[in-house]
Structure formats: structure tokens, C-alpha cells
Design a protein around this nucleic acid. Structure first.
Lengths: 117, 117, 117, 117
DNA sequence: GTGGTCTAGACCACG
DNA sequence: GTGGTCTAGACCACC
């Protein structure tokens, strides 16, 4: 597993888990892999994994129980959809507009990339 | 001037200058405002401005001449367009796909946000 | 039955039993309900109940006889009163004083809460 | 500096800083001692201090700026007063009532302890 | 000098 | 076996 250098690893892992919730790999009520298991998979220290999970806990997406495990809070998927998609779309459009692109051009480059990429 | 807390200030300033180049506020060959002027406008220390300018220099977008000033390298606009737009579009689409969205849905939410926002 | 997330469940159960001794629900010499019964009532594993009872045993409040049951030690109520009330009152007052509250103000907020709550 | 064994050290430190805000030792806008300074004073690792400060950050009480320091958010004192005092008073009274004490008795033991202690 | 991240390893309390 | 806390030390980016 490789990470971008300019974003904290625990944030990148947290984001990845969020994505897994959104695309259905992880579902409501599911038990997450243990901190130690993740630690092996991602090849980072256990503490880094815990910070990722802690982060998700603060955001109300997962709930950790000592001695038991971490579980996906039911209904978190719907919340994530609005939050993550909405935020990122707004940010993306704002940046495109700041660079002087009009609405049609924005839709154009998206379509182009979808077809080519 | 206000900045996001989780992104280095000098990066945010550098990004704004890039955007000004792309939307035509700053043009090929133009002399940038002085560090002092920027320092007043953005309400940050001169050192932070210098790091922003240094950053743009490293990226080949501007050229600093000692005792004279910094100038926008000719042709930088075209380069920026491909780099900034291309990169960001790819990243954006990748994230949307990671969250399980199909191509049509991606275009849909973009259009929706363009009309509402 | 619901528990606070940041305090061990077995401690919370032990505390509730202590409170029942103090308010008279459980009296000197009484036999405690069985581990199984508690397990059903509190909706936790038998092991957790046993830890709660073990805890009370260590504190000298109950006495467990193998194959017979657990019994409330005579005189435990009086001991609990001094211990629990005394400790908690001291701690509470210390915290209020650490926050800069004077004696009169402490009595005031207590009275206010007693009337409103 | 000594800590209670059953409460995380970083929580105890965070609580102590909150108390200092409430009793006026630390005021709105004040810069907190650095992580390293605290680390020496409390004789714990720098990371433990950072978790305490991080906690206060999540609660909106302080704001940390990379390379600059941590500062007390203006208006945090008023918020703390309502939150900390209110919560603790309610909890204290609930526990006293669970033990079978009537309102007058609660006020009585408080007054007694204030005079003796 | 400042806060932030990460590691590797340890110990503990919980269920 | 699980999550939570703590250490000591390192490196980094920021201002």
C-alpha cells in the first residue's frame, strides 16, 4: 500500500474506509477488521490505524467498543453520501470557476475525461 | 483574507496566484506585486509570501530577478491549464468512482450543482 | 439497559448494586440475584456480571459462597455511606473550587439544580 | 505531577487546562505553553500532551496553528461554565439521589464538607 | 521554536 | 483477541 506524501496517512486510510462504506464493501453494522489486521494490510503502525478509526469515530461513522471491535454505525452511509459528494463537488466547481472556466466547459472536460480515462 | 486551516498558507497563496494567471488577472510577462504589497493584502508575514513565490519559481511559472522583481514566465498559462485542470479532473473522477458512482451519475451531480450553486 | 460508553460496564453494574444497597432495595444478608438473572436483566455476558460481583467482593461489600450464591455483608450499608458519599462530595467540591467557584456559589448552584431538575 | 490511575492522563491534563481557563489563569486569546514545555512540567511524553491539546481542539476550546502555537478561543470560558458546571452538578445530584438521599440531606452534606474541608 | 505525524514496542482493561 | 494509552525518539512542515 502506498500513500501520498502530503496528506497524513491516517486521513488517507480513513478516507479509504469511507469509500468502502459508500461503495458497499462495508455495510451498516459490519465489524471492521481489527487494528492489528489493518496494521498488517496497510503496512503502518497500529497507532496510525487507530488514529484513522478514532477519526471516523469522531465523525460518527463508526463506534469502537473496547475488547470487542469497531462497528459501522447504521445510517452512516446516507450521511456520507451527502457530506462527501456534496463537499467535493462544490470545491471542485469552485476551483474550476476560479480558473475562469464557464459552466459548459466544466461539463465538457468532465465528459471528455470520463470517455478517455 | 482568510485561509483554510488544514492547508499551508503559502500553498493557498500560490494557488490563488495560479488562478489569477489562468483567469487573466495576471498575464504573460507581467511583474508580480512586491512581497511587501502581498504581505499587506494577505495579512501574513513576508516570509510566507516569499515561500509562495519560491514555490511558483520551482514550478517554473514565475522567474524572480534579484533586486528587480518576479515575472510571469511566458507560456505559463497554457502549461497551467493542462496541469491544474487535468490533474484535478482526474483526481475528482477517481474519488467519485471510488465511492461507487457511475459515469452518468457523476455528470448528473455536476450539472445539478452548477444550476443550483 | 444502557451504559455510558466511557466507563467499564462491570463498574457501572457494581455501582448500581451499591446504590441499591444504599437506598434499601438490597439489605444486609440478602442473597443477590444469580449471575444468570443479572445477565438477562442487564443484557450483558455472564462474565461481565461476574466481574462486577468479583469487584464487590474485593471491596468487602458482598461475600460469595461457591455453589450457594452471593450475600450482602452485614454492615456494608453504613460503610458504603461514608465511603461513597464522602468521597464523591469531596471530589465534587474540589472540582468546583478548581474552577474558581466560592463556597456560597457552590451551594447556590446545587440548590438551583435541585429545584429545577 | 501525579495522576489518577483509572483516567487517561491526557484527559486529566485537558481537564486541568479547562479549569485554568475557568478560574482565570488562562484567558481568551492567550497562547498556551508549548507542547514541549508542558511535557517537562507534567513529566509525560510530548505525544500525551498533544492528545490533551487535540482534545481541547475538538471541543472548540483552543486552536492550534502549526509553527505558531496553541491559543485559547475567545468566548470559550462562557461555554465551559455552562457545560462543565452544569454537567457535573447534574451527575452529582443524580448519584446522590440514586443512593436514596433527599434534597435537604444533599444540601446538608455539601455545607458540612465546605465548612470542615 | 512550533505543532503534527509516524514508528516500534510495551502494558493494560475489557469481554 | 480487542481497543486504548503511553513512551521515547525521530522527522517534517510551518512561520
Amino acid at each position: 500500500m502506498e500513500f501520498k506524501a502530503d496528506i497524513p496517512i491516517y486521513i488517507q486510510i480513513a478516507t479509504q474506509i469511507k469509500e468502502q462504506i459508500m461503495n458497499g464493501t462495508l455495510k451498516d453494522g459490519d465489524k471492521l477488521p481489527s487494528v492489528r489486521e489493518y496494521s498488517v494490510v496497510y503496512e503502518v503502525s497500529a497507532l496510525t490505524i487507530q488514529r484513522a478509526i478514532e477519526q471516523l469515530g469522531v465523525e460518527g461513522i463508526i463506534l469502537s467498543k473496547k475488547g470487542v471491535g469497531s462497528f459501522i454505525v447504521s445510517g452512516s452511509r446516507e450521511g456520507l453520501e451527502k457530506q462527501m459528494i456534496g463537499e467535493q463537488v462544490k470545491e471542485f466547481i469552485e476551483r474550476m470557476r476560479n480558473m475562469g472556466l464557464g459552466d459548459e466547459k466544466i461539463v465538457g472536460i468532465i465528459k471528455e475525461e470520463l470517455n478517455n480515462g
